[in-house]
Design a protein around this nucleic acid. Structure first.
Lengths: 194, 194
DNA sequence: CGCGTATGAATGAATG
DNA sequence: CATTCATTCATACGCG
């Protein structure tokens, strides 16, 4: 456990996914991707794959199954999550306002498995700054032979961001449904900045 | 490589002292909240804030930044964790019920992993023995003054009808040309096996 | 100093 | 696609 090095988390507590068809003794009910699986998925993601179709999902799943147990839905969820968090990160993460600018470190936000690709400093716009899928042309990710050419005219001019505006509604609905467990009267804080 | 597990916290010392003891924020990997920061966060939580929205998170983060280095994601995580742990605690207590189970293991999570759904439909559904969370409706902590006027046009995302129907169905049946997806129509990213 | 606990961080799973 | 819940991993800290 060096402190300077990379502590490869290896995600391995119940990581024995290699049971093949047995499916026994898997005490953890949650899929725990292996390193290879993650790598493959990440590569695909970086290659521009964001929302694989059903058949793609199945193929990916099949391919990944050699590394450990996996289901199609895992792949499905993985892409969903990965994409969502990529977005989310741009919104939440490190949006240090103009207030204070401590240029202490540039790696303010953690990158879970981001393989060195553009991480432009985001503005906290709720939309827009996405869909910028980069397109690679020849991706030789796998030991197989055929490398499909990828037509890269995506343009991704998708402005399909459905404005899920939740400004004023959520504020109250949140409290009405979520509630708060406080036995004390609503303290009137000086939270005016909110 | 599976750099998905890297902790960039790959440095060692981090003595972000706090609590009014002086102490200066040494930029370390992990955010260490200040006493004031914790207090404010806790106050907000006690005031009923459970899952702040993005804009709230940012404001909170900005506000807290005067006490020390902080990022939006820290606020985000803080609320996530705080809420989760409280629920967890409550669940654990309710599990004990009248029986003192203190010998077998400390792992007292039901771990009901079901491939169907979970038991918490939405925000607040408690087992039973909890404290009767009160809904604060007179919470004027968050002025909606000009937020509302900010939003005049909504246009109501009508195309929000994504077929996010259950995973399984989507995966193993015809995708039925949702038309809403197809990230980039062309890009037939067929990486070997796809 | 080793260990248990509190908690920050991450992510799989699911729902709307 | 957004949001949330649940669970787990990784650390900082305090204790004995």
């Amino acid at each position: 456990m060096s402190l300077e090095g990379f502590s490869i988390k290896a995600r391995g507590l119940c990581n024995n996914n290699n049971m093949g068809g047995g499916g026994t003794g898997t005490k953890c009910g949650r899929w725990n991707p292996t390193g290879e699986q993650v790598k493959l998925l990440t590569d695909l993601f970086n290659a521009g794959l964001r929302t694989p179709r059903t058949d793609q999902i199945q193929k990916i799943s099949t391919e990944l199954s050699v590394y450990g147990k996996i289901e199609s839905k895992n792949v499905f969820y993985w892409f969903q999550n990965h994409k969502a968090r990529e977005r989310q990160k741009r919104r939440k993460i490190s949006t240090v306002d103009f207030d204070q600018r401590q240029d202490t470190d540039e790696h303010s936000f953690p990158h879970r498995h981001n393989t060195s690709h553009h991480q432009q400093p985001q503005k906290d716009t709720f939309e827009g700054i996405e869909e910028e899928e980069k397109v690679i042309e020849t991706l030789q990710l796998f030991p197989l032979s055929e490398v499909e050419r990828m037509r890269a005219n995506n343009t991704t001019a998708s402005h399909n961001e459905y404005i899920r505006e939740q400004v004023n509604t959520t504020l109250f609905s949140t409290y009405s449904s979520c509630g708060a467990e406080m036995e004390h009267p609503p303290l009137d804080l000086q939270l005016s900045f909110l």
